[in-house]
Amino acid sequence: MTKHKIYTMSFASVYPHYVTKAEKKGRTKIEVDEIIRWLTGYSQEALEMQLEKQTDFETFFAEAPQLNSSRALIKGVICGVRVEDIEEPTMQEIRYLDKLVDELAKGKAMGKILRTK
């Protein structure tokens, strides 16, 4: 079976789209970075290094220092598919991130996005 195209795309090529989506709705790059750090465990410096290295999505998630255990609380539909029902682990991580950025763009409070409140 061939890998999905997104796995080999560089995270850095999609990252600006996450930021643009958030900024169009009055949110910030800082908030996008906070979401990514919460989900993956990367420090800001390590996140920036991954962006500079043009790391692909599969490697980005495989090398994540500590995937947040609370990510299992992320529920809902992204691209017509329920994120909690995605069986392939890497695709689920990608869709978790998509869902969190969507929630940010929809104006949800950071505490709710990060599943702390």
Score class of each variant (00 low, 15 high):
1 M>N: 08
1 M>Q: 04
1 M>K: 10
2 T>W: 13
3 K>C: 01
3 K>E: 11
3 K>A: 12
3 K>Q: 15
4 H>F: 06
4 H>Q: 11
5 K>T: 11
6 I>P: 00
6 I>E: 05
7 Y>P: 00
8 T>I: 06
8 T>E: 10
9 M>C: 14
9 M>E: 09
12 A>S: 15
13 S>D: 14
14 V>Y: 12
15 Y>M: 09
15 Y>N: 04
15 Y>I: 05
16 P>H: 03
16 P>F: 04
17 H>M: 13
17 H>C: 08
18 Y>M: 14
19 V>T: 09
19 V>A: 03
20 T>P: 00
23 E>N: 06
26 G>N: 04
27 R>D: 00
28 T>L: 05
32 V>T: 05
33 D>Q: 15
34 E>F: 00
35 I>N: 06
36 I>M: 07
36 I>A: 06
36 I>F: 07
37 R>D: 00
39 L>P: 03
39 L>M: 14
40 T>L: 09
40 T>F: 08
40 T>Q: 02
41 G>F: 06
42 Y>N: 08
43 S>C: 02
43 S>N: 06
44 Q>C: 05
44 Q>H: 13
46 A>H: 05
46 A>G: 02
47 L>G: 06
47 L>T: 06
48 E>N: 15
49 M>L: 10
49 M>C: 02
50 Q>P: 02
50 Q>E: 15
51 L>H: 03
51 L>K: 10
51 L>I: 13
52 E>R: 07
53 K>R: 15
54 Q>W: 03
54 Q>V: 03
55 T>L: 08
55 T>F: 07
56 D>P: 14
60 F>L: 13
60 F>V: 13
61 F>K: 02
61 F>V: 07
63 E>C: 08
64 A>R: 05
64 A>L: 11
66 Q>M: 09
67 L>H: 13
68 N>H: 13
69 S>P: 03
69 S>I: 12
73 L>R: 15
74 I>S: 03
76 G>R: 03
76 G>L: 03
77 V>A: 04
79 C>L: 09
85 D>M: 11
85 D>Q: 09
85 D>R: 07
86 I>Q: 06
86 I>T: 02
87 E>D: 05
88 E>W: 04
90 T>R: 01
91 M>I: 13
92 Q>N: 09
93 E>S: 15
93 E>D: 12
94 I>N: 01
95 R>D: 07
97 L>W: 03
98 D>M: 11
98 D>P: 02
99 K>G: 02
100 L>M: 15
102 D>E: 14
104 L>I: 07
104 L>F: 05
104 L>T: 01
105 A>F: 09
105 A>T: 06
105 A>W: 07
107 G>Q: 08
108 K>G: 00
111 G>R: 04
112 K>I: 08
113 I>V: 07
114 L>Y: 01
115 R>P: 00
115 R>D: 01
116 T>S: 05
117 K>L: 13
117 K>G: 10
